[in-house]
Design a protein around this nucleic acid. Structure first.
Lengths: 225, 225
DNA sequence: TGTGGGTATGTTGTCGACATTCGCATATCA
DNA sequence: TGATATGCGAATGTCGACAACATACCCACA
């Protein structure tokens, strides 16, 4: 069972955020944890009742998720959780090469020591979560790691587009969770090496490591099926 | 004065489309024609009444426009038409280099003779609209031209991201309209040369022309102020 | 037994109204 | 006079209900 979206203790903290955004966060969580299955139809009345909110706010959330590519809405037919395919992974990998790689290269010359210090705390956090096998939290930290890097690229539009891609990447990672159990060490090591490259402001190394890291996800997917 | 969104003659044709999308189209039109000014606050009740629709559908439309970056919604403060700056133009230009150029290069080897034939009809249309000085329609054809090219790149995510960028580019063009009056010939010529390059499947030429074309917009903006 | 049409049921699309919050004008006091 | 408190009007956030539509089922009839 889950806590209601707006229980007493949270109501003050999140009152600033539109309810639709809070609901979108919750739906993303349910998708990534598998509580909502891929391909599943999302009945508005049912879901709204379960979350104890109105259909209006739910629909607002669904529109956000549709923009992110996590669900697909067929007019008059309903909203369905999008079921990613290998073809989707190819598209996403191509986009990462076009957007994330150039973003990281720009970041290399703009990254601050504070950024690097923060990244290193994330690395520590990663290792802990890997030990405890808390995959959901681990992937969250992973998102934060990459977003921190892209965030320094200096182009707000690149950042917001990367967020969309990242949401989809995360969806893949969630599905690949069992395969990542085998690659615990690799996971931390790749990120640690990236941090080292940024620390040295070594553009070539960043590019090489980043490409390898991106390929890693694509390769992992190939083992499935 | 404008026709109401859902008058009798249109009601059948657009009944399939969610009202929110129709409203979004109308709002885009009003922004691009200048009927709605940049920076203007959009009062939901007022706008909904004027369009003769409910606030729900209007809010759905506004959410779409916010994703496209045409408006910005400040929680509890209202929705405002986004006012683009030169800095925004720089970001957009950078993104075009990252997304549109690679897309066009991929298209070069995938474009069909039917595509080229269609592009040539658009060229004819462009010349006619330039003669008649119908700038709004001209920019619409321009969007269709570029979208046709990007559409052949084979990556659906690149296409949908390009659509977002293009909507913002279009917003700039609308503001630069007076400057384009001076460049009538250049406008058609650049597109015609691009078509020729695609016809020959000449990747290098496509890349060079496309970059020049992108720079052209950025340069035009520099004359402003 | 298979098919077509019509009805019943359930779901999405759209609407109007209430609840909450914000900003501004006015009032009050140092 | 200036700064701060306060109350009112207006706009956004959220909700529940009705309307329009799609689907599934059932029955009549070939």
């Amino acid at each position: 069972m889950h806590l209601p979206i707006h229980n007493e203790e949270n109501s003050r903290a999140i009152k600033q955020k539109p309810l639709g955004q809070v609901v979108a966060d919750e739906l993303r969580r349910r998708i990534w944890t598998g509580e909502i299955a891929y391909g599943e139809r999302l009945l508005e009345a049912e879901l709204a009742a379960e979350l104890d909110i109105s259909r209006s706010s739910l629909r607002e959330a669904l529109q956000s998720l549709e923009y992110e590519g996590l669900v697909i809405n067929k007019a008059r037919k309903g909203t369905f959780v999008y079921n990613f395919t290998k073809q989707d992974m190819k598209e996403i990998t191509e986009l990462r090469y076009l957007i994330e790689i150039p973003a990281l290269l720009k970041t290399t010359s703009r990254i601050t020591d504070e950024d690097i210090a923060y990244l290193e705390t994330l690395l520590v956090e990663m290792e802990r979560l890997i030990d405890e096998e808390k995959w959901y939290d681990l992937f969250n930290i992973d998102m934060q790691f990459h977003l921190t890097l892209v965030h320094r690229c200096g182009n707000s539009r690149i950042i917001s587009m990367y967020k969309v891609i990242q949401t989809q990447i995360r969806t893949f990672l969630s599905q690949l969770e069992p395969y990542y159990r085998e690659k615990k060490q690799l996971f931390t090591k790749e990120h640690a090496m990236l941090v080292e490259a940024f620390k040295k402001r070594d553009v070539q190394k960043v590019e090489r490591l980043a490409k390898e890291h991106i390929n890693q996800v694509a390769v992992t997917l190939d083992f499935v099926d």
